[in-house]
Design a binder for these strands. Structure first.
Lengths: 350, 350
DNA sequence: CTGAAAGCGCTTACAG
DNA sequence: CTGAAAGCGCTTACAG
């Protein structure tokens, strides 16, 4: 309802605690307590106050309250890019977890630009945010996180680690995960396997590459450096990498991709070139996005536990806010291989 | 930098304006003015103050400021679902537009639940947000928007209209857009065309269906009711609709889809059934997501101006905040047909 | 060009 | 169970 006494289109007199107090002949302290269901206020008084507040359309001023209590009810979330469905799935589970504690969340993309990330942390500090969940931008120095914590903004990391920052980290076991995918391809009979996408500049990138290398070495397979095509992390880039991949000397029979987006883009590119992904070339993804199951062919990929990551990160942060001590530790979610139709035996004899 | 004088891991004494004022022997008024680059303060004084503030790691308290000024620097954005790339693209352009005015934005999904949307608007009111950009949930009564505006929260709508709400609306000309797609199919020789996805409960849904119907009627083509498969709006749902579509009596030779997601899902389903989209069945999408161009086959679709929608909506809201009068009007972005490989002549003689 | 003082709208000890 | 008063950290007239 609009505020009582509002004239034609004009803003009414602002309704505040004292408006209610005056109308009911009680003090603002009593109103404040009543609205927050304090047992200190008599049941009848409380009901009268709450009913009146509702009737005249009172709006609680959180800025004023938070200035006094120094709790704002705001949590910041900053990731590389929300357009990436991997993060979008994480965000959804963060959202539903925070919702239950009536925390509002502010979202930002840093696009791996340190400056954008710093501006956002600064904004959170100025707003008096209660905490931040972040997938740190490439090159984030531990000091940035220490600074936030020292100024009363507890942090929890997702997806990527920052060496030297003593905060909880929730992410998948990336080395183990790409190991699963690579071993799956090897067990199908593939001997020449490409690794497509990703970067050495993030912990995730290094771990995933490591998992692939280790699996190849353990199987006694040679890895030619040019079989690795670093960089792509999007569908578009995967699509564009297809021609480069197909033109490779000693062309591999399979590609272990950085993530599902790259894998799907690559498959599209392979199909565009007249080859059949899953038959002519085997492809694995990473993340198991909702979309992986309906790709053509359905994508063999590694489930990365994004729902879990989001849920646990949010709940760890809430624990921190509520004063419970949360150990700075690496929580590794164990990935699982989901085999579908994009992988098969190599076509040619090896 | 951490605050000066911080002990081992302990939170330092909070640094505020008066800390700086005391240290420099000036008043808080002068410090406040200086930090905001007021010309009222002598250049030298200003520099001394700003330098000192930086040195001791002063953090501006926006809650306190906004309590005083009643401007919070916060803008709310609420959409159906940020995981939908259509909205994700809009959000990006909103973000870059707001960034330039140093406004922070708070994001929320309402998943077409009125209750979630109301909770969010309430939160914005409590935080004293400066405005809201929304794609209204199905069934949003105009009163909800009027209430927000009367309480000092100006609103701008995107993508969907709410009858009776006197606020600016930015969206594509949906009827015209599906008309483009349908006419394209007709001109290729298709006579039986299906409409897949969408709902009559939103203005967008009604408009898109209307555009399809009008085009069919103008071409003197019959439309069998069961050729319409309402509902799907996601890739998954489009995928699942494929079998229903393929089993249709008098099966249409083409499908005009609600959006790109449905179209891509449908094409995947068609391919899974052993038919070739673009050859056996023509498919059109809507939105022209980045992904449309790299789908297999590349998707013929209607560009919906999402970048434009986001940019203009944000800039209209900023104008409103700055006191410029913004007419409540429908801004229809004119869609464009982008022809690619998912459409062709009908295979069978008609 | 600078300072003293009031006030934004809450909550929290402290009395009673 | 309820009230009077101080204070959170800013900004804004108002004086000088």
């Amino acid at each position: 309802m609009p505020q009582s006494g509002a004239g034609e289109g004009e803003l009414a007199q602002k309704i505040k605690l004292s408006t209610i107090a005056d109308a009911l002949g009680v003090s603002t302290a009593t109103v404040s307590l009543a609205l927050r269901d304090s047992p200190l206020v008599a049941g009848l008084t409380r009901e009268r106050i709450k009913e009146h507040a509702r009737a005249i359309g009172y709006i609680y001023n959180r800025r004023a309250a938070s200035l006094r209590t120094s709790r704002s009810g705001i949590v910041g979330v900053v990731v590389h890019d929300i357009m990436n469905p991997f993060f979008a799935e994480i965000l959804r589970s963060i959202e539903s977890e925070l919702d239950r504690s009536r925390q509002t969340f502010i979202l930002s993309n840093h696009y791996d630009q340190l400056e954008k990330q710093r501006t956002f942390i600064d904004t959170l500090l100025q707003l008096g945010a209660d905490g931040v969940i972040m997938s740190p931008a490439i090159g984030t120095p531990p000091e940035d996180i220490v600074m936030a914590e020292e100024n009363g903004l507890p942090a929890v990391l997702i997806a990527r680690t920052v060496e030297g920052a003593e905060v909880p980290v929730f992410r998948g076991d990336d080395a183990y995960g790409t190991g699963l995918a690579t071993n799956h391809l090897i067990s199908l009979g593939h001997r020449r396997i490409s690794m497509i996408g990703g970067t050495d500049q993030t912990s995730t990138g290094r771990d995933r590459f490591q998992g692939y290398m280790t699996a190849m070495e353990n199987a006694g397979l040679e890895v030619k450096p040019h079989w690795r095509i670093p960089g792509p992390r999007t569908k578009q880039a995967g699509f564009e990498a297809a021609s480069q991949f197909l033109a490779l000397k000693d062309r591999p029979t399979a590609a272990c991709c950085w993530n599902d987006l790259v894998a799907i883009g690559l498959m599209n590119g392979i199909a565009r070139a007249g080859l059949v992904p899953g038959v002519d070339i085997s492809v694995t993804g990473y993340d198991d996005l909702e979309e992986a199951a309906i790709a053509t062919p359905a994508l063999t990929t590694v489930w990365n536990g994004q729902r879990e990551v989001g849920r646990r990160a949010a709940s760890a942060l809430l624990d921190k806010l509520n004063g419970q001590s949360v150990r700075p530790s690496q929580e590794l979610i164990r990935p699982e291989l989901h085999v579908r139709q994009s992988t098969g035996k190599p076509r040619e004899r090896v």
